Computed example of a mutant assay.
Amino acid sequence: MQVQSLFITATGTNIGKTHTTVKLIEAFADKGFCVGVFKPIETGVDTFPHDASLLLKVCQKVNKNFKDLMPEDITAYTFPLPAAPFCADTEQIIDLNRIMEKYHELSQLCDILLVEGAGGLMVPVTKEYMMINLAKELNAKVLLVTPSKLGCINDTLLSMSALRSYDLEFDWCVNIFEDKESFSEVTQPFYDAVFPEWWSVEEGLQRFISTY
């Protein structure tokens, strides 16, 4: 059986991709899935890849096939500079084939592989290859995580437009952690009017999992 892939992205950085991916690992496992995780590129890594380490730790609790792996086994590249991969890759060592090889290796260990991108959809991996290109190449369904802060409507709609332009199947959710007190007044009315089925990471994850 061909492994299913879910590509977790966001409208930008520090939106809650890793937080959401952790919740997804636990939720998929609770539904009986053999779930795996892949963090293709992590930047801002001096000696310890914090995101990959957290994701692996959670995954190891639910998938014995990941028990003996190390954080570097679930990521293809790490860079010290906290920047877009293209900028962080000062020696231009990123090889897209290596990312795909790592993806296929990890796919053998699960029946659904969660792939967490870096930053947002249009973050450059190389000069001409963006994160959205990776999602397309993986033929993965996309989960777009959006913030709850003022201005997020614009960012959400722009990201949706990009996904549609690449003909990518996607769902989306709100990570309610910024401007929580004003969200219901400043942002939610638009979502309720235009996207009545919208959901948040805090409420709605189980319904999303049930579509698999």
Rank of each mutant, 00 (worst) to 15 (best):
N65I: 00
L96M: 12
G120H: 01
F208L: 14
D155S: 01
D68H: 05
F183C: 07
P40F: 10
D192E: 15
L109E: 10
L6Q: 07
G204Q: 07
L121R: 07
A29M: 06
I41Q: 02
I153N: 03
F183L: 05
E137F: 01
E181Y: 03
T47A: 12
F79T: 03
V3F: 06
G119K: 04
I41G: 03
L138P: 12
L54C: 10
T43E: 05
N154T: 15
K141Y: 01
A83W: 12
D73C: 09
A27E: 12
V142Q: 00
L163T: 10
L24Q: 08
K149Q: 14
H50W: 03
G151V: 04
T11P: 00
S53P: 03
R98W: 07
C152Y: 00
L24R: 04
F183M: 06
F33W: 14
Q206Y: 09
K180E: 15
D192H: 14
F183G: 10
E105C: 08
V58T: 04
F86A: 10
I74N: 05
L138F: 10
G120R: 00
K141P: 02
M131I: 11
C59A: 15
S182A: 14
T211K: 15
Q60H: 06
V35Y: 05
W199E: 06
Q188T: 06
P82G: 12
